[in-house]
């Protein structure tokens, strides 16, 4: 605490001159995000357990892939390359990396493991870890639900608003979720890329680089979408339990119900699919990898029944609709947070 006042300054202006350290806005945002994310991390043991479990699944998946690499590249018992059904070319290690990494990424956001594609960037799926998404959803609901709701229930918003501007508060909350999202979604996939590159061998890093970029873009979009939705629910209530449950149910239940409605017609894909956030994320991932034709097997890939979603044929579901619908969800969540912080929490 400063002991002495500057008398001359006080006499002239009736208050003393500011003498303290003033950090910039970027620092404050970073400090705010970091602090809130560490609060959530420190509070919940379940978060650490779930994160450990996700890492365990990824390690197992890696071991599986590396152990059975030859079975995916060559005819059994020979060195004759398998033919890539999507390109008609012999399978390469790069193909293997691309297919498996992108499937891992898609497995983060879907319970439907029977989406496939016939164009480069998709290919036949070599493996599936769609079950990982349930843990990701639980994790993001656990972490994100309390970010705003806890402040409302503990009335700490008043303290924060006395130190931060409202937009700094909002950006700080999104930043906190982003830090977490990058840790559990983006970083594991980036590490996975390098592990696969190192483990599979015979891979040109330059050739594989676009896959890394695609992986980062897709996972960042996933994080942004989850951040917007979970924080939107968190801003709507003062109970983190309700916010977490609502966010989880919103993502999970819609993904359980809507695809079955959308794929019930005779070969036609219903527009209801645009209401399912997880399917939108999945389709967006195909769009980012340059895939415009996605095949869905409602009863598994061995079944004869399949639906084709052509995202660029000018009829039915189109790429712009998918991206537009996803953007609407992101904006809606963000708008709820802004409205609540500026209006509801202003008293």
């Amino acid at each position: 605490m400063k002991k002495a006042q500057s008398d001359a300054y006080v006499r002239k202006f009736s208050f003393r001159a500011f003498e303290g350290v003033r950090k910039g806005r970027v620092y404050r945002l970073w400090a705010t995000s970091w602090q809130w994310w560490t609060h959530q991390w420190e509070r919940s043991r379940a978060i650490k357990v779930l994160l450990g479990f996700i890492i365990f699944i990824l390690v197992i998946t890696n071991l599986f892939l590396l152990s059975f690499k030859d079975f995916m590249l060559y005819e059994p018992g020979t060195r004759i390359p398998l033919i890539n059904p999507t390109t008609g070319e012999p399978m390469t290690t790069n193909n293997l990396l691309e297919q498996n990494l992108l499937e891992l990424v898609r497995g983060l956001v879907t319970f439907q493991t029977s989406f496939s594609s016939q164009t480069p960037g998709g290919g036949e799926m070599g493996m599936s870890i769609g079950g990982l998404s349930i843990f990701i959803l639980i994790l993001i609901a656990l972490v994100g639900s309390g970010l705003i709701a806890d402040d409302v229930s503990n009335l700490t918003t008043e303290i924060y608003y006395s130190k931060l501007e409202r937009h700094e508060y909002i950006l700080g909350k999104f930043g906190a979720f982003f830090l977490f999202g990058n840790l559990v979604i983006v970083l594991p996939m980036v590490l996975e890329f390098f592990l696969l590159v190192a483990g599979l061998g015979e891979i040109s890093l330059i050739q594989a680089f676009p896959v890394l970029i695609q992986t980062i873009i897709i996972t960042e979009i996933i994080v942004l979408t989850f951040a917007s939705i979970v924080l939107g629910f968190s801003a709507l209530t003062s109970r983190r339990l309700y916010a977490g449950l609502a966010a989880f149910m919103f993502l999970f239940v819609l993904n359980m119900i809507i695809p079955s409605l959308a794929f019930s017609g005779q070969g036609e894909v219903g527009f209801q699919i645009l209401f399912d956030v997880l399917t939108l994320l999945l389709l967006t991932s195909f769009i980012i990898t340059g895939t415009t034709e996605v095949i869905y097997y409602p009863h598994g890939e061995t079944s004869e029944i399949s639906y084709i979603i052509d995202l660029a044929n000018g009829s039915g579901i189109e790429s712009w609709m998918v991206i537009g619908a996803l953007a609407m969800y992101i904006l809606l969540g963000f708008a709820i947070v802004v409205y609540q912080v500026y209006r509801r929490h202003a008293r």
Partner: peptide, 22 residues
């Protein structure tokens, strides 16, 4: 919208605005 001014103000609200778990 004056972030630098907030740096000069300390505020104690009438509520018990604390995180009980901390």
């Amino acid at each position: 919208n004056n972030a630098s001014l907030k740096r000069r103000i300390g505020y104690v609200s009438e509520h018990e605005d604390l995180y009980p778990w901390m």
